[in-house]
Nucleic acid binder design. Sequence first.
DNA 1: GCAAAAGTGTTCTTCGTACACCCATGA
DNA 2: TCATGGGTGTACGAAGAACACTTTTGC
Lengths: 268, 268
Amino acid sequence: MKMQKYTYDYPHPAVATDCVVFGFDGHDLKILLIERGIEPFKGAWALPGGFLRMDETAEQCAIRELSEETGLNLNYLKQLGTFSDVNRDPRERVISIAFYALARKTDVQGGDDAAQAKWFGINDVPRLAFDHDYILHKALEKIREDIHFEPVGFGLLDKEFTMSELQRLYEAILGVQFDRRNFHKKMLQTGILEEVEDDSPTFFGKNSEMRSMSIDALFGNSAPTSRSSYSSSHDDDCRSTRRWGTKFRFNKRRYDEFKEGDSFRQEF
Amino acid sequence: MKMQKYTYDYPHPAVATDCVVFGFDGHDLKILLIERGIEPFKGAWALPGGFLRMDETAEQCAIRELSEETGLNLNYLKQLGTFSDVNRDPRERVISIAFYALARKTDVQGGDDAAQAKWFGINDVPRLAFDHDYILHKALEKIREDIHFEPVGFGLLDKEFTMSELQRLYEAILGVQFDRRNFHKKMLQTGILEEVEDDSPTFFGKNSEMRSMSIDALFGNSAPTSRSSYSSSHDDDCRSTRRWGTKFRFNKRRYDEFKEGDSFRQEF
DNA sequence: GCAAAAGTGTTCTTCGTACACCCATGA
DNA sequence: TCATGGGTGTACGAAGAACACTTTTGC
């Protein structure tokens, strides 16, 4: 079967996809890399990706390769650009359609069994194979732009999250610090967040399955950060009376209203 | 030579580029289309574009095809996305890397000799071949976003332009109306415009070669607009004493300072 | 002279930003 | 009890939006 050849009247480049998978461990923005097992760049780290099949779109290809190489099943992919330098692959002419994707901790939990896949803090990324350094650079640029106008952040957090988690995420992505009160105010007045009412004592287990699991240590290779003492408390204590740790969730309906509405460019 | 064949172990899709060329006639946003001379979609209008050669990047390919098919030599191209639906081309699997480009009237003047190339008002675009309707739709979406943060508009006007021309361009692209005074003020306070001093009587011909040529009728197929009585005065009158029709130009240095500066997302 | 476009400033409102205190929790 | 993080409101300044009249030109 492998002996079959494919012949064309004109030369065709090979077409591949690559995917920059972002994650967030509560402190740092992470990306997922795989270690190459074959030449070229054997042993080097690279973005997950692979060659396009004839019966799938680029996005389907990226999703499939991601699943095969890292065990991650994601569906929020965003195209980021196509890279077509003539010599970007030493084997043959390969153009690569690049995406970025957002992984929740719960996604990671599901299938981080790919032995050669590893999370790296965004500041601890090694030299990558091919032009993947450049692709990563572009992905960072793009997510930093997108986050102002699209609900990028919510793809990286659990369905319910605290305002502080959201703020830390924004700070990690943008590399800046925000004033807590102003951040809180601005996020609320966009209207795309809704508060999760936690004080309703109706059913004892109402929101229990939605409560975020402990924040740290789900990303296996969390780079040593300055503050490693972040709350590793179990969640099964003190549920009923606290209005501490208010949780929010993304209100997709409201967001869609914004997007369709007159106000093009609603900013987050 | 044509008999030579190219053979691969795995199937390769064909790779093409397509280009959405925007123009502006003073009233309406235009795009440049070509009439297909061969099947498939023979006789239909389509975006200029063609197949990628093995020794050129996607951008180089788009520039080359544009020149070959329309006579236009442009260099501001912006990648807009790659379209990879499995059946987007009935001949074989073709993925297309799409760009948009900005044409000045002076660019058009240079080489609009391609018989089958024609400008269409953005509201008078016919049904296009392949998935080019969709690509055009995406290009419009993108330029409408980009114009707020990048000097898109200045690629569509002559080097020197009046504030009203700039405003009409923004209104044509965004499909909204602005208050003249607020638009003027906002544009100036971004700092990316510099006023062209027209009142200096030092050299009689100082700016004469830079004066924009008459505004209308350079785009051959200007759709009939509501107000067809737009100033078609020749420019060679009343030069010396008027402070009417103040011209501005884009200040690239200032713009670059913005981009590098702290203020990510400077808005226009 | 009349219609249409260009030029210009002020007011009000909205949004962004800077800033300080109290409470709850866990060590 | 102490250190840390979470929650909240106000005051000032900048930017955006609304708004009218005068001058010039072409007809």
